[in-house]
Each structure stands twice: as C-alpha cells, then as structure tokens.
C-alpha cells in the first residue's frame, strides 16, 4: 500500500534529480533549459504575477465547467424527454465537438471580447462530454424500474427526479471528470489564441509572453502551475465522485472489500 504510493513519487523525484544533475554537469544555460531549482525560485520570485494569472485562468475554467454542467444536464434531460429535439440538435453538438477548439478560437475573437471568447472556448470543449454522458445515463435506466414507476402512476417529473437523474449520476460524474480537464485545456488554448495582455492575462499568455522575452524559467514556472491546476481539478472531481457514489456504485467500491 505505502510502497505503491511512494513508488510514483520516488520516480518523479529521481527524474527531477537527474534533470538538475544534467543541467549542472553539462553547464546548460538557463535560457535553453533551466534546472528545477531555478524554476522553483522563479515561481517564488514571480509569484505575484503568476498567481494573478493563475486566478484568471482558474476562474474562467471553473465558470466554463459550471456553465457546461448546467447546460449539459439541461439539454440531456430535454433530449431524453423529446427524441425529436435530440435528433435535431445532437449533430450540432457533435460538429462543435469535433472541430478543434484552437481553430474556432480566432473566429470567436472576432465577435466577442477576449475574456468572453476564452470562456466560450472553455465552455464548448467541456459541454459535450457532460451532455453525451448524461444523455447516455438518462437512457440507461433499468427497464423493470421504469415499469414499476408506470405501475404506480408516476408523473413525468417524478420519473426524471426519482429515477432517471439518479441512474444517470455515475455517467454524469464520468463526463464531469473528462470535462474538468478539457475546460482547462480549452481555456489555455483560447488564451494563447487571444494573446490578451494586461489585467486579464491568464497563465497561457504568461507562457507566450515569457517565450518572446526568452524568460525560459518563467515559461516552465507557468507550465508547472498549469499542471498543478490540472491535477487539482482532477483530484477534486475524483473526490466528488467517490463522495457521491461510495455507498451504492460499483465504480466507487473500496478495493479488497
């Protein structure tokens, strides 16, 4: 158990150590490859700048994820109720999903201001996994339970609230975990396309800007922050998944029970 947990950490630290050693032994200049220690000190020195940008990116990611969750679940419920609506709108959702967001971003920037365009991009990539997973979950209810609800004369709203939504919860949470990562990717991709400077500059812009200035350690520091943000989002959603499903769903079952 502990060995299994320590192993990935040990590998990670060993890689950092090797990196540090190579940079020092080969005397590689920091504008080509900074050592991990330098990246760490840059992170601390530039914290004020980087943390402000991190807040911008995280805020957009969280807002996009919240909007995607709201609209994704809403449309999935509407699709489950009216098949014709699903047939007419689902292809549009697929088109938005398969078109790379980095290609849509410049177009959105023509019509929207930079902040809104970045939000729209992050929303677009997060929306589809939630919509499609929740729709799948809503249509995967136990047919015997559906019969039972019919037998006792359940209303349409009771069917949704007491049967379809709870059945769809594991599917929805699966979609949410994918969407969490994607909304960060969408936000970063759109920030790079937007290239917005000044007050509302996100982490991706800091990377582009630092690249122009050959400030490679700062590029790495911003990159590290993006990775950490991604990991934090993943862990938070994983935790939410466990907390909501642990009592009843196979996927959240403790191993070795």
């Amino acid at each position: 158990m502990t060995a299994a947990r320590l192993l990935p950490l040990a590998v990670f630290l060993a890689l950092l150590g090797a990196w540090e050693a190579v940079v020092h032994l080969q005397s590689i200049p920091p504008y080509i490859l900074p050592a991990p220690s330098l990246i760490f000190t840059t992170l601390i020195d530039d914290w004020r700048l980087l943390s402000a940008s991190l807040a911008v990116t995280l805020r957009i990611t969280a807002l996009a994820l919240a909007l995607a969750t709201g609209f994704g679940v809403l449309f999935a419920v509407l699709f489950a109720q009216w098949r014709w609506l699903e047939r007419s709108l689902f292809p549009l959702a697929v088109i938005l999903q398969v078109t790379p967001i980095i290609a849509i971003a410049p177009l959105l920037l023509v019509y929207l201001d930079a902040g809104t365009a970045v939000l729209a991009c992050a929303f677009l990539v997060a929306f589809f996994p939630i919509l499609s997973n929740t729709a799948l979950g809503l249509s995967s209810t136990d047919h015997n339970l559906r019969d039972l609800f019919d037998l006792y004369g359940a209303s349409r709203w009771q069917q949704i609230k007491l049967l379809r939504l709870p059945s769809a919860l594991p599917y929805f949470l699966g979609g949410l975990r994918i969407a969490g990562g994607l909304s960060l990717i969408g936000a970063i991709a759109a920030e790079i396309a937007a290239g917005a400077a000044g007050q509302g500059a996100g982490l991706a812009y800091r990377i582009v800007e630092a690249g122009y200035r050959l400030n490679i350690p700062r590029m790495f520091a911003a990159l590290a922050l993006i990775s950490i943000a991604g990991i934090a989002i993943w862990l938070a959603l994983e935790w939410a998944n466990r907390a909501m499903l642990s009592r009843w769903h196979e996927s959240a079952r403790e191993r070795g029970l």
Binding site: D142, Y152, G153, A154, Q158, L162, S167, L169
Partner: peptide, 23 residues
C-alpha cells in the same frame, strides 16, 4: 420482478417508501 429491481442509490427504507412516495 425476477430481479429485486431495487434503486441502488436509495437505502432500504427509501426503496420500500417509493410506491407511497409516487402516490
């Protein structure tokens, strides 16, 4: 039914309560 057909997300009380709740 042939299977117990219980709602896995609900405890025993809520499963038995279901028909009355629907009414």
């Amino acid at each position: 039914f042939q299977d117990a057909t219980l709602m896995p997300w609900a405890n025993v009380f809520d499963n038995v309560f279901l028909p009355l709740r629907l009414k």
